[in-house]
């Protein structure tokens, strides 16, 4: 474990298994809890369906209402940029697609490497901008907790280390690749215990919102 190749083989092997185990255990526990605890029974007469409006809302809530955009344009625009960039770098980079194929058994077409590289660079800059904004905006600085900064860090490190590894800016390569994979494992381990669960719960919440309004026969 003390040499670069040994380190790489450790992060790709036992460390990855451990991180995935913690991630799966934590997330499934959370999700089962959410679905089982559910909502209180509503004895009023339903005036519309739940499922249709629920799913529709998952999509429509992706667009911010004009009020939110007016109040926080920076968060909306930069947030979209780095979220999309993060997803593209994660899901459409061919070596990552091979990783998913190894774990889940399915693959899909990817983007050319230089395209993903450019998008990653933009994403890294956008993420740094969000941190600077959080530190400089008086209200946001006040309400930020340690968890906010930890989550920012565990999201930023995989992007940065991945960029460094792709461009081979750190020698030897097995070391920086190992650090990149380790940073992802850190992300996975921290995930179920922080606001990162919004990756799943945001869509669940949107569904619930749409379902509640839909039952009342109201546009959501």
């Amino acid at each position: 474990m003390s040499d670069p190749m040994g380190f790489l083989l450790w992060v790709k092997g036992p460390a990855l298994d451990g991180a995935l185990a913690i991630f799966a255990l934590g997330m499934l526990a959370r999700l089962v809890e959410i679905f089982m605890l559910g909502r209180k029974p509503n004895y009023a007469e339903p005036k519309g369906g739940e499922w249709g409006p629920g799913f529709k809302t998952i999509l429509t809530r992706s667009v911010t209402d004009p009020g939110t955009f007016a109040r926080a344009p920076f968060n909306v625009v930069v947030g979209w940029i780095w979220h999309l960039g993060f997803l593209i770098a994660l899901l459409l980079f061919i070596p990552h697609i091979e990783l998913f194929k190894g774990v889940l058994g399915i693959a899909w077409p990817g983007l050319p490497n230089p395209v993903v590289d450019a998008i990653t660079a933009i994403t890294i800059l956008a993420l740094i901008a969000t941190l600077v904004h959080r530190l400089q905006h008086p209200v946001k600085r006040r309400i930020s907790t340690r968890e906010d900064y930890v989550v920012w860090a565990v999201t930023f490190l995989p992007l940065l280390s991945g960029y460094l590894a792709y461009h081979r800016l750190v020698n030897p390569y097995p070391l920086i690749l190992g650090l990149h994979i380790l940073s992802v494992e850190l992300f996975l381990v921290v995930f179920p215990f922080t606001k990162l669960t919004h990756v799943f719960t945001a869509f669940i919440a949107r569904w619930y919102n749409g379902a509640i309004f839909g039952r009342k026969g109201v546009e959501s």
Partner: peptide, 27 residues
């Protein structure tokens, strides 16, 4: 490929997922 994991992470995910569902269900 170099980016593919060693061992069988798919099984780990499944087993840990089932354990997590049990834990969540119990809670």
């Amino acid at each position: 490929p170099l980016s593919a994991p060693l061992g069988s992470p798919g099984n780990t995910l499944l087993a840990a997922g089932i354990a997590g569902a049990v834990v969540g269900g119990a809670a």
